[in-house]
Design a protein around this nucleic acid. Structure first.
Length: 601
DNA sequence: CGCATTATGAGTTGCAGG
DNA sequence: CCTGCAACTCATAATGCG
């Protein structure tokens, strides 16, 4: 059973990377084996079981005929029946509103002392709790999946009523919190039940997203479920340990200098790493996103990508602009080589003409990160009038204002007292794309800035991917997710790595047109197959793709950063944000490719 | 409707200086 | 240790124009 082997391999990859030699996780590993065995030997029951839970809960909320069922549901959660009927009367069938009302009532009745009283036990019971939790999860995996699904709702209610003490419990507060995050009460209550009441919102949100993602799959559900179970167990352990030690040593920190495992000019003190068995290919994979994401995001990304430590690199070591990004990949890190010719590394090298107008008090050597929008003409006008009032150097206050704005909007000097934002073709050059890569073909100037701002820095990525040249002298098949304007493809091509077939998934039509146009101009011999949406790629389609191209050698892509990026004032919601949650599809697809590739061997 | 233009901070980190 | 300050960030939404 290759599937079973595959899932069993996922264990053990902790930070030290010494695969399965780590004593601390032995218990966890053994549990994994049990879990995985149980799941993989009865795949139909697994999927049936999980979906059945969700399905029955949803049915009880949407079915108008079953009002008593709804009452039972909330009474089972520990609310008084009179309150429940009242809440249902006020809110109709909307379970979210009902819960909100119930929690509000409870909170009003509850005294703060009592709420605090239910929390925080002495430290001695920490590990007892831990053991209980782990065995709970294990019994879920084994028992509930194997059980007849008809008994599930009863068991659910039983567990709930046992755990509820009657007052406003931690669980109820969790449910409210998750409901406020936009999850349904059904999903939230399942997540709380599975993960325990002391799990953080982050853990619970992860669980729900993974469950949602799993719900959409059918034939590969066992794999995903077992993976999620394992991740959650490990995560809980981490949280426990962290709470006990009261330190934040577990969270990922950004390196200084941000050079990852090295740049063409700089090498860190330690340049060795060992990967766990489960993280190795085929396929190789390369994942990218913004380095300065909200707290906890990179911990989550790393956990979902086989616990590989992200490589944080600032592209200012590869070009004249900064670009702080994190890369999670299972590529070798020895014998990397840079793209040639080397790009300009300073502003003056990149823009020789600007030197004439560059004031001595503007000491910038590198530009800041290229974003998706540019500074306004009004701003450059304000700067010009501010500077030209003075004959020599302006006073410190004016210098500070001008420099703040120039750094913020990446402005360069293009004339006497004149600053301006970068032109699109200048951005192309700084990011390592061929000139006019994004020009013409029906794309607007605004969209050019947006597509370029969302792209890779080609020299940086090419340096990391260069190791593939020796491994695949005859070329590679690439699955490119969130391709954008084809940064990965350009990097591989410029590095002299032959592209056999490229399967590209990109939502934006103008971006797909850009990649298609580039593909046809560069005399590629293979074929470019493109898709619109990553969510369309289910197991069946991926298997079809793999059969037709003969295997995927590299899965590459950076998932949307909209909800992670600091520039976003409106919806910086983290990994669960509308667009950024597509990260979970990257994981899902990578796992599918991995499974199918393993089966072919 | 497509396109261009503009205004709109917070969250996080690092660091100097108590 | 703490505290204040400086620096930086793959963006969204509203508006106007043709």
């Amino acid at each position: 059973m290759p599937v079973r082997n595959q899932t069993s391999e996922h264990m053990g990859g902790n930070a030290s990377g010494e695969e399965s030699a780590d004593v601390d996780w032995t218990t966890d590993d053994e549990l994994d084996i049990l879990t995985d065995t149980a799941i993989s030997t009865s795949p139909t029951l697994t999927s049936h079981g999980t979906v059945a839970i969700l399905g029955s809960m949803e049915a009880s909320s949407s079915g108008g005929a079953s009002c008593s069922k709804l009452v039972k549901h909330f009474v089972g959660m520990g609310f008084p029946e009179t309150l429940v009927s009242k809440a249902i009367e006020e809110n109709g069938g909307d379970t979210d509103s009902i819960l909100n009302t119930l929690l509000t009532y409870s909170a009003l009745e509850e005294s703060p002392e009592q709420q605090l009283g239910t929390r925080s036990d002495p430290a001695s019971s920490e590990y007892d709790t831990l053991l209980d939790d782990v065995s709970d999860m294990d019994s879920w995996s084994e028992d509930e999946i194997a059980d007849d699904t008809d008994s599930m709702p009863e068991k659910h209610k039983l567990l709930l009523s046992l755990e509820i003490t009657g007052s406003l419990t931690q669980e109820q507060r969790k449910l409210l919190s998750l409901a406020n995050m936009g999850f349904t009460v059904e999903d939230a209550s399942i997540a709380v039940e599975r993960c325990g009441t002391d799990a953080s919102d982050e853990v619970l949100a992860d669980f729900i997203c993974a469950a949602q993602m799993a719900r959409e799959e059918d034939c590969y559900l066992p794999i995903i479920i077992s993976k999620v179970t394992r991740i959650l167990k490990k995560r809980k352990l981490h949280e426990m340990v962290r709470r006990k030690n009261d330190t934040d040593d577990e969270s990922i920190r950004l390196p200084n200098p941000m050079i990852g495992y090295g740049t063409p000019s700089q090498q860190p003190e330690r340049i060795h790493r060992s990967l766990s068995e489960s993280s190795m290919g085929p396929p190789f994979f390369y994942y990218e996103n913004v380095a300065l994401a909200p707290k906890g995001v990179w911990d989550a990304i790393s956990r979902f990508l086989y616990d590989i430590e992200p490589e944080f690199v600032d592209s200012k070591y590869f070009s004249a602009t900064a670009r702080k990004r994190g890369y999670v990949h299972n590529l070798p890190i020895e014998d990397r080589f840079p793209l040639v010719p080397l790009p300009p590394l300073t502003i003056h090298q990149a823009f020789p003409l600007s030197r004439k107008w560059w004031p001595s008090w503007d000491t910038r050597d590198k530009l800041n990160c290229i974003q998706t929008v540019i500074g306004s003409a009004r701003l450059t006008e304000r700067i010009r009038t501010a500077v030209e009032r003075f004959d020599g150097d302006p006073p410190d206050s004016v210098q500070k204002f001008v420099m703040d704005q120039c750094r913020k909007w990446n402005l360069v000097w293009v004339g006497r007292n004149k600053v301006a934002p970068l032109e699109p073709d200048e951005v192309e050059m700084l990011l390592g794309f061929p000139k006019n890569h994004t020009r013409g073909g029906g794309i607007s100037r605004t969209d050019r800035y947006k597509s370029l701002g969302n792209s890779f820095q080609v020299d940086t990525v090419a340096y990391h991917l260069s190791v593939l040249k020796k491994i695949f002298p005859n070329g590679i098949n690439v699955l490119s997710l969130f391709s954008g304007i084809g940064g990965a493809e350009v990097a591989l091509h410029r590095q002299g790595i032959k592209l056999k077939n490229v399967v590209s998934v990109e939502k934006s039509k103008v971006n797909r047109d850009i990649v298609r146009s580039w593909w046809e101009q560069t005399n590629q011999t293979g074929s470019l197959i493109d898709f619109d949406d990553v969510r369309m790629l289910d197991g069946e389609r991926i298997e079809q793709i793999i059969n037709s191209v003969g295997g995927i050698d590299l899965v590459v892509g950076g998932s949307p950063c909209n909800n992670l990026a600091g520039s976003n004032r409106v919806s910086r919601d983290g990994l669960e944000g509308k667009e950024s949650a597509l990260f979970y599809d990257y994981c899902r697809i990578l796992d599918l490719v991995k499974c199918i590739m393993a089966r072919k061997l």
